[in-house]
Design a protein around this nucleic acid. Structure first.
Lengths: 216, 216
DNA sequence: TAGATTGTTAATCGATTAACAATC
DNA sequence: TAGATTGTTAATCGATTAACAATC
């Protein structure tokens, strides 16, 4: 029944769309709807409906003429392709404001990621409770990463410390780093790194505002 | 001397690259370097060097054979094209953890955006100081947006409140909303909205980790 | 059936890369 | 000069959209 579950590698934009569909359809399901058409999905994220159908075909879901797609079926296909049901563990390193904010996010769980350790080297922060987790000293990082099988480090330390901490994490066997430190990291090729430069979003918005103002 | 300063509209990816060049070259300048080649720039963000030259040509900078590009000249061209020198004002609405983190970010200033007002409707938070700003009650939003000429709202309220607050801001004449609330907003077409869905980054990383694990 | 909607192939579009001449 | 690097045109690639037949 399940189709040729895709595929080699999803592009960034495809992944982003799949996550939108997931979000949109879960909301729709909570609202009591059972199905959604490609046009509805397309409008919700401002893309062409053909593209939606192509995306869904790629993850092996088939729609029904005159009806559309089963929301639950699409949601579960997306979860399967993205692997949401395989749990991963993450640690937040650097409990500044951003680190605290990320540590307290609800929502990781939806994507199968659990934040299960927090680290800082500031004695004032060590021992504080955030959600279910206590802030641990940085020198415990290596031990805890190993003992708890942590896969991902969410890196929110100051830029000067980023490389060193990242190296610690890698040596302890981490598989991926979500880097908010705003610096390049030099790491082995088999460690996945995503550099999150959040201000790009603001700069883009600012660019649009300025352009509009210049025009008028 | 200044070339046909671009251009109609920069794509998201181009904007992102320009910001990288800016970041990289400022760092280089601080390190004492004067110039950089397209190859160096290209390597720093893992793109082809031809693309770098094309980007720089587009913003009207010319390089020098055998030498490369003047870092200061490129930086200033980028600032000019992106309009960093035209100051914009932003307000953070919703002083939860994420809002507080964003409000305390250094770095807006580099892009010509100043956070100059903070709002929340929780009596406990009202009156608190964050940086140079005092947290104000939400019912002052409209007045302050007008009186201080605020252009951008950084929206970090809970999803259920997002639409209402956004509407308030729009009615007060805001030009753009940087939306962290995780909900769609229905707004007039002349208001720029950027929906920041931060977990997409994590989901992408998690996807890569899982894919690698399945392979081995 | 007629009509709405899917699924798929071909066409288009835009972004990136290759090739190579021009420059210092 | 020879060599490094730029600038630009043409080719490629991948993602998106258009067209339209298939399905219920």
């Amino acid at each position: 029944m399940q189709a040729p579950l895709a595929t080699n590698s999803l592009s960034h934009s495809t992944l982003e769309r799949l996550m939108h569909y997931h979000h949109f359809l879960e909301k729709r399901l909570r609202g009591g709807a059972r199905t959604a058409t490609s046009t509805q999905l397309a409008e919700s994220i401002h893309v062409d409906d053909t593209l939606v159908r192509k995306d869904l075909a790629m993850i092996g879901v088939r729609g029904h003429p005159r009806i559309g797609f089963e929301a639950a079926e699409v949601v579960s296909a997306i979860r399967k392709v993205l692997g949401f049901d395989k749990k991963l563990r993450a640690a937040v390193v650097g409990m500044g404001r951003l680190g605290s904010a990320l540590a307290s996010f609800r929502g990781f769980g939806d994507y199968g990621v659990e934040v299960c350790a927090l680290f800082d080297n500031d004695p004032i922060k060590i021992g504080l409770l955030s959600g279910d987790n206590v802030v641990l000293p940085l020198d415990r990082l290596s031990m805890v990463v190993r003992s708890r099988g942590i896969n991902i480090v969410i890196l929110t330390v100051p830029p000067e410390a980023a490389q060193e901490v990242a190296q610690l994490a890698v040596d302890a066997g981490i598989e991926a780093i979500w880097n908010f430190a705003g610096t390049e990291l030099k790491l082995p090729h088999d460690v996945f790194v995503r550099h999150e430069h959040i201000l790009v979003g603001l700069a883009e918005l600012a660019y649009l505002v300025r352009k509009a103002e210049n025009r008028s």
